[in-house]
Amino acid sequence: MKDLTQQILNGDIRSIARAISIVENNAPLKEPLLDELYPFCGKAMIWGITGAPGAGKSTLLDRIIAAEREQQRRVAVIAVDPTSPFTGGAILGDRLRMQRHALDSGVFIRSMASRGYLGGIAGATRDVIKVFDAAGYDLIIIETIGVGQSEVEVVSLADMILLVLVPGLGDEIQALKAGIMEIGDIFIINKKDREGAVKLKTEVEYVLRFKNESSAPPNPVIMTAATLNEGIAEVIAAAEQYFQYLTDSGQLEQRRRQRLRQEFYDIVLTKIQQVVENHYNLTQKVERLVELVVEHHEKPYALIEKHLNSILKEIEQR
């Protein structure tokens, strides 16, 4: 394993890919490997990019990669599709629009589907970030295909979030209402040549007025036309400036610490859950409780309380 760690630190593509699979498969090697890599983490800048399907995220991302490469930054992309059913298969087609970077050794793109990961797909993504970080990528970008609950969870693993909106999808207002505005740092109005783009920008700026504190710089709202490669430089400039602000103001540190805190909660709870499931055959027990409630009209809360106590007692005795 020391070997694998060393290969990853050297930036060996195959080893990085393998390590990600180890994370994805939750292989026994996962935990020691991540611990070995951990001291080498923390250098990368982590961006999240999200927006409704059809907003042009992948195309935009493709342009951002190109621009970052011009500055010699090594870029890793995690394209996450959390919508696939847990047990079924998945088609991961998001990298398609970034395929022209396939031959660039400074770009690594990895597609991930949800697989019923222990700890959710966010947990797995978090670990994949560590692999890329240790491997020396300067910029790690998490891309999600939509703006649902689990997407927000995944994208929130980033230091900074780019939210892509587009006029004419009919869902922009909904997005504003759904509270997704809360998570965005940089707002991108893509397809600016479309009707309604300016109006959308005004609306976004209006909503942001209520969000911004007076001391912070306002969240940038940038208009782009990704397919025409317009506005990309502005996005990069705004993102870098904002990142600088996050760093200088101590917010970056705060966010990272909050993430670590969340990670610990997640891991501890997941492990407890695992123990309970493994040792107490929870599935079967729950089945019996359901039966008691349905067939014998027992009271759910009282019932659970009783069983919970017995489980906790057993744990204590172990």
Binding site: I91, Q99, A102, I109
Partner: peptide, 25 residues
């Protein structure tokens, strides 16, 4: 059928395909 499938799109060079296969493991 339950597999995870990655699709590259058309007009891929053998080099790009090999690199993609490795990155996606």
């Amino acid at each position: 059928a339950g597999y995870e499938v990655i699709y590259t799109g058309i007009r891929q060079s053998p080099e790009a395909i090999a690199q993609t296969a490795i990155q996606e493991d």
